[in-house]
């Protein structure tokens, strides 16, 4: 419904008939073909740019495996951290929803501080700042407070992502209608039973898609842990790429390998996230066993899919909880 269609008849802008023919031919080409053409063109442009930079594919082939092998560090840090984040987010959300000032206040401080400061600053705080406290206290504290780069990374990522996910969990729990809690209460359920049996299972449907996003974002943020100076044994693809790239003056090649690796990794997880979402739709889809509505956009691409936006797998609109990423810390 552009401005053209709104024009009164006779006032359409004049156009050479050649363009009408182009448009007619264009309409006959299937959407998928056009989409593939766009991607092919993109890669051609990139290939040209790389060729201009004397892209050393032989070097890439020789060293790609060394860089990619660091992926287990990425996955290990991300998986361990997301588990801690989920626990923190659940506690944080229950705190934010509590009428008791102690958990409410603690959760408020937690989300405010960890959402209000840069992740990289927090990582350095745990790695360098905490070590300073440990050294000053001496004794056993030294062993508890002086952390390795990976330990500090896991701590930092868990606390930071837990704070953002607190808002996701809070919104998810609040999205469950109050009548559900009342029905559970009327049956004589305790608070724990109510949460475990009625509220959280329903909240998880709302929580899972954005949590999947957070996990994908976290896999990328694990690269920041390298900046603490991880050992070679714990070097992730980014650290391996920078070390090797600098040594051989092949940084472009090395970083492209690392970037593609992250891209494939997030793509794979987006795919599994989509599957999980579809499974969670059980009980919310009227026609059981019906396939998800067709959507021509390929979902497995990280950029387009991570979001679960538009909820491809689900037939009901689910409010996207506000993670507060853009909002000022509260």
């Amino acid at each position: 419904m552009g401005a053209e269609t709104a024009r009164p008849p006779g006032l359409e802008p004049r156009r050479h008939p050649f363009w009408d023919r182009v448009e007619a031919i264009g309409l006959r080409i299937p959407y998928t073909v056009k989409l593939v053409a766009v991607w092919v063109a993109l890669f051609l442009v990139l290939a040209l740019a790389f060729a201009g930079a004397h892209f050393d594919t032989a070097w890439m082939r020789a060293n790609a495996w060394f860089i990619i092998r660091g992926v287990w560090v990425t996955v290990f840090i991300a998986v361990v951290s997301i588990i801690f984040s989920i626990i923190l987010a659940l506690l944080g959300a229950l705190g934010r929803l509590s009428k008791n000032p102690v958990p409410y206040g603690l959760a408020g401080f937690y989300t405010s501080f960890f959402r209000g400061t840069p992740l990289i600053v927090q990582l350095y705080l745990w790695y360098l700042g905490l070590a300073q406290i440990g050294v000053n206290l001496g004794g056993v504290w030294k062993t508890y407070f002086v952390l390795s780069a990976v330990q500090a990374g896991i701590l930092g990522l868990s606390l930071n992502y837990g704070a953002y996910m607190t808002e996701i969990f809070r919104a998810g729990i609040q999205s469950v209608p109050h009548g559900q809690s009342e029905a559970a209460e009327a049956l004589g359920m305790t608070y724990r039973q109510r949460m475990r049996r009625v509220v959280l299972p329903q909240a998880f449907r709302v929580i899972v898609p954005p949590t999947g996003n957070e996990f994908i974002a976290m896999m990328k943020d694990t690269a920041l842990v390298s900046l603490l100076g991880t050992s070679i044994a714990w070097a992730d693809p980014f650290r391996r790429a920078t070390l090797l790239g600098r040594a051989d003056f092949r940084s472009l090649e090395a970083l492209v390998v690392a970037a593609v690796m992250y891209w494939v990794l997030t793509g794979v997880f987006s795919f599994f996230q989509r599957k999980l979402e579809n499974r969670l739709a059980k009980g919310y889809v009227r026609t059981s066993g019906a396939p998800a509505p067709k959507d021509r956009r390929p979902r497995f691409l990280p950029g387009s899919a991570g979001g679960g936006q538009g909820g491809g797998g689900m037939m009901v609109e689910i409010p996207e909880p506000d993670t507060g990423r853009e909002a000022p810390p509260g």
Partner: peptide, 28 residues
């Protein structure tokens, strides 16, 4: 809680648990 166990409540808006089947709702 003890009082509620002895009291059955039916709501205007049903408030069935949507993630459970009819039978699961009843035996919950």
């Amino acid at each position: 809680r003890q009082l509620r166990i002895r009291t059955g409540m039916v709501f205007q808006s049903f408030n069935l648990f949507p993630h459970m089947t009819a039978l699961e709702n009843v035996i919950e």
